[in-house]
């Protein structure tokens, strides 16, 4: 992830995006909250991660890591690398 974004700033940005995307109150978005308990299904999460890549201008690794909690989601996004600009 870009060094200009601290983990706290990134997590706050992601919380805002999740709250808007899935119409969930931001108070419920604690790191330990499970994706399932928030009513986010697996396809919705995949679609969201794609949007995060666009929003942040990053590429995420092609991982098969199960993302069970928001902490898992944040950790996965933290592995992203800045998107290469095509010459």
């Amino acid at each position: 992830m870009s060094s200009s974004n601290s983990p706290e700033v990134l997590q706050q940005k992601l919380k805002e995006m999740i709250a808007e995307e899935f119409s969930i109150s931001i108070d419920k978005l604690t790191p330990e909250a499970t994706v399932e308990s928030l009513g986010i299904d697996s396809l919705g999460l995949i679609d969201f991660m794609f949007k995060v890549e666009d929003e942040l201008g990053v590429d995420m690794p092609d991982s098969r890591t199960p993302l069970l909690t928001l902490a898992d989601v944040y950790a996965e996004i933290a592995k992203a690398t800045p998107r290469a600009v095509k010459g």
Binding site: I46, D47, F50, E53, D59, K86
Partner: peptide
């Protein structure tokens, strides 16, 4: 039109 690698993941479904 972009890099030819990335595609919206829900395209199939």
């Amino acid at each position: 039109l972009r890099d030819g690698k990335r595609i919206k993941p829900l395209t199939v479904v």
